[in-house]
Each structure stands twice: as structure tokens, then as C-alpha cells.
């Protein structure tokens, strides 16, 4: 397989950031009240991820190792601000629906995680396609979860009424906060039942792998503590 196609396949299927790696849980749970919101969040993350991967990969030989995390954070935060302003101008409806979760893309573990785990080690072209793959994987997962919640919660799909209320009684709770936890629980249980291994069941401590980056520093820190 072509190495670029391989990166995209890897992001969407093999290492889907949302479903297999369990990264970026906050936006996954928060904005998936409808399919449209899922698509919007997924695409804005995709945009940030592609450019952050690209820029970080191009600058991988310039940024000194000791200050790489603050440098990455500045790059990502600038990109997020750009996306935030663009969305505010061109898609005001979506912008107000996603609200605080747009600026919070900065602390989405997928972005720093990919920067640290992949983009700072490879050439820009590979990093770019990794960003595309991971971003698409995230978008698809959010859309599917959003679609499921929207359908169960109101009988709609992408805002269009599919089943009228006489045939199908909507389960309103799926559109509200608890539904997010519920649908994720069911999804992971199905994956477990089908014995598809996910990060959810790896033994994780401390940072819970929230950031691929910080897990390591916590480990060494815990060891230091234990010694002292």
C-alpha cells in the first residue's frame, strides 16, 4: 500500500483516535448532541491537526528539545485562534452551537499527542497525511456518535425528521448529558464484545494517556517520588 494511503487508513481504521485510542474524550462527549455538530467539531479539529502536524514537522529540527511542548502549544493555540475567528465569521450558527469547545481544541489530546508521537519525527508530507487520516477518523467517529444520539434522542438525522413521533418514541436522555456517557459505554462494550482491543482497557495510571506526552513524565515523576 502507498505510504500516504496507509497513514489515512491508519487514522480512520487501525488507530482511530476517538474509538481505538480514546483520545479527545471531552469534545467527543460534549458536542455530539447532533450529527451536524459532530461534523463541525470534527472538521475544525481536522483543520487544526493538519496544519499543526505540518508546521511542527517542518520545524522539528529548529525547536530545541527542552522547550518543545510550550512551542507546540503556541503553534496549536495560534491555529485554533485562526479557526475560531474564521468560524465566527462564516458559520455563526455552528460557532454558537459548539461554543467554548472551539477554543478548547487547544487542549485536545489528539493534537499534542500526534505532534509528540509522530509529527516531530517524520517528514512534513507524512505528517500531513497523518493529520488528514487522524482528523478524518475523528470526524467520522464524531459524526456517527452524533447521528446515533440525534436519532435516538429525537428521531432526526442531520436535522431531518426520519421517524415521526407516533412510530418512534424519542428517548430524550440521549440528547442530553447522560446520553453521551451512555452511548460511549455501549460503543466500547460492543467493541469489547467483538474483541477489538482499544486503549480503554489498557492499564493506565496517572494521566490516563490523556496526552501521549505527559504520560511519560508522570511515570518518571512517580518513580522519583517513590525513591525520595
Amino acid at each position: 500500500m502507498n505510504k500516504y494511503v496507509e497513514r489515512i487508513y491508519n487514522g480512520i481504521v487501525k488507530e482511530n483516535p476517538c474509538i481505538i485510542l480514546m483520545l479527545g474524550m471531552c469534545p467527543t462527549l460534549a458536542v455530539t448532541t447532533s450529527a451536524i455538530n459532530g461534523v463541525g467539531m470534527g472538521l475544525s479539529t481536522l483543520a487544526v491537526l493538519i496544519f499543526s502536524n505540518l508546521i511542527i514537522s517542518m520545524m522539528r529540527n529548529i525547536i530545541p528539545d527542552q522547550v518543545r511542548l510550550p512551542a507546540y502549544i503556541v503553534i496549536v493555540a495560534s491555529l485554533v485562534t485562526i479557526v475560531d475567528l474564521i468560524m465566527q465569521a462564516y458559520t455563526p450558527g455552528l460557532y454558537s452551537a459548539l461554543g467554548i469547545y472551539i477554543p478548547l481544541i487547544v487542549v485536545n489530546c489528539i493534537i499534542l499527542g500526534r505532534a509528540e508521537a509522530y509529527a516531530n519525527k517524520v517528514t512534513p508530507d507524512l505528517a500531513f497525511f497523518d493529520g488528514v487520516g487522524m482528523g478524518l477518523g475523528f470526524t467520522i467517529a464524531l459524526t456517527v456518535i452524533g447521528l446515533a444520539r440525534e436519532f435516538l434522542g429525537s428521531g432526526c438525522a442531520f436535522g431531518v425528521q426520519i421517524l415521526s413521533e407516533e412510530i418512534f418514541h424519542p428517548i430524550a436522555i440521549f440528547g442530553q448529558a447522560p446520553g453521551a456517557f451512555l452511548i460511549m459505554a455501549i460503543l466500547i462494550a460492543i467493541l469489547n464484545g467483538a474483541s477489538i482491543s482499544t486503549r480503554a482497557n489498557d492499564k493506565v495510571e496517572g494521566c490516563d494517556g490523556c496526552c501521549a506526552t505527559c504520560a511519560k513524565s508522570c511515570d518518571s515523576k512517580e518513580k522519583e517520588e517513590a525513591k525520595a
Binding site: M22, P178, G179, A180, F181, L182, M184, A185, I186, I188, A189, N192, T198, A200, N201
Partner: peptide, 12 residues
């Protein structure tokens, strides 16, 4: 349901 799913269910 062992592991993450039951935790998410409790959270729900």
C-alpha cells in the same frame, strides 16, 4: 462491560 464501559455507565 468490564473496564471502561461500566465506568462510563456509572458516570451516565
Amino acid at each position: 462491560f468490564r473496564g471502561a464501559p461500566v465506568v462510563l455507565l456509572s458516570a451516565a
